[in-house]
Design a protein around this nucleic acid. Structure first.
Lengths: 160, 160
DNA sequence: TGAATATATGTAGTTGGCTACGTAGATTTG
DNA sequence: CAAATCTACGTAGCCAACTACATATATTCA
């Protein structure tokens, strides 16, 4: 047991980050081991387009919860991989409409069994006394009610 | 509800990352609001040195669970801020021994009340049905037994 | 004891997010 | 209807971690 693990709650963001990194790196290995040329960071975009076939850049960004510049750089990579394509919206010339290519759709079909493995492995992993997925959802919900910062300010006030 | 939140388990690392970022950013605000010139990323190093006053670079890296290059760049910043200082180990010329300066120790004393606020706010935030801190610890323990990748490989095998 | 190996530190470059800022087209409003 | 504002997209550069590689010192062992 090191000092940081003991400090527990004070270093919670550090530990969340560490766990996210560990899982993402193993994600890369899982795709590779299944002969699929795909990076975990692409998942949110591809999965979103699987269910909502035509979206603008900002719509995708909102769906996946990233900023639009981050989304643009993902889209650039995906376009380079020919997994998506885009065209101008005739009705609103500011917008660029993104959709999957045939190659992208085929890749999704190939990935579906691997996603099932992901699901099974993740379910097994987080099926502990305190369910990680539920814990995240619960904390996110509480943050939506009142931010971490606002909570700290309130608690500080009540101590003075 | 967007597609990514629905995909849940498939995008778990994305969600962990997002939550870590949110908390870290609010961490910056909390220090600022309490007139403390300190970045959350420095916490692991400073907190470790608070309990183990003289450590080498690699010892700190192991304690905080970062790689040594990451640790070195943190140490550079902290040395620039005059919160730590370092000297060569006479017994082992390869080692650089790190310790807090008087300024660093004073800052810790100033931060202690703020750390209490952090603790209180975090405890409040994660005190839900599924405790996030415990969930992380449980998942980390399971990963130590068998990695996420190994679990996926095993589950894949059992399906073929 | 010197050759091979291991350990400690450091540098360079990558990654996957971000913020800040700029431009072009669409919408609203005096 | 023109000016102001808003929205969509894009670029540039930052940040906090990482991996890969290099160098110097210490240790081990044939």
């Amino acid at each position: 047991m090191n000092v940081i693990d003991e400090s527990g709650i004070l270093a919670i963001s550090t530990r969340l980050q560490r766990l996210a990194d560990t899982l993402r790196k193993d994600g890369v290995l899982i795709y590779k081991a299944n002969q699929i040329d795909f990076e975990p960071k692409w998942f949110p975009v591809i999965y979103t387009l699987h269910f909502k076939p035509v979206l603008s850049v900002v719509e995708i960004a909102n769906e996946i919860g990233y900023t639009h510049p981050s989304t643009i750089s993902l889209l650039k990579e995906l376009e380079k991989e020919k997994l998506i394509r885009s065209k101008k919206d005739k009705a609103d010339e500011r917008k660029r409409l993104i959709q999957l290519t045939a190659k992208g759709q085929e890749l999704i079909e190939q990935m579906k069994p691997v996603w099932e493995i992901f699901k099974a492995a993740t379910t097994e992993l987080i099926n502990t006394q305190n369910n990680l997925m539920k814990a995240i959802a619960e904390v996110e919900e509480k943050i939506a009610e009142q931010s971490f910062f606002a909570r700290a300010q309130r608690l500080k006030g009540s101590k003075q």
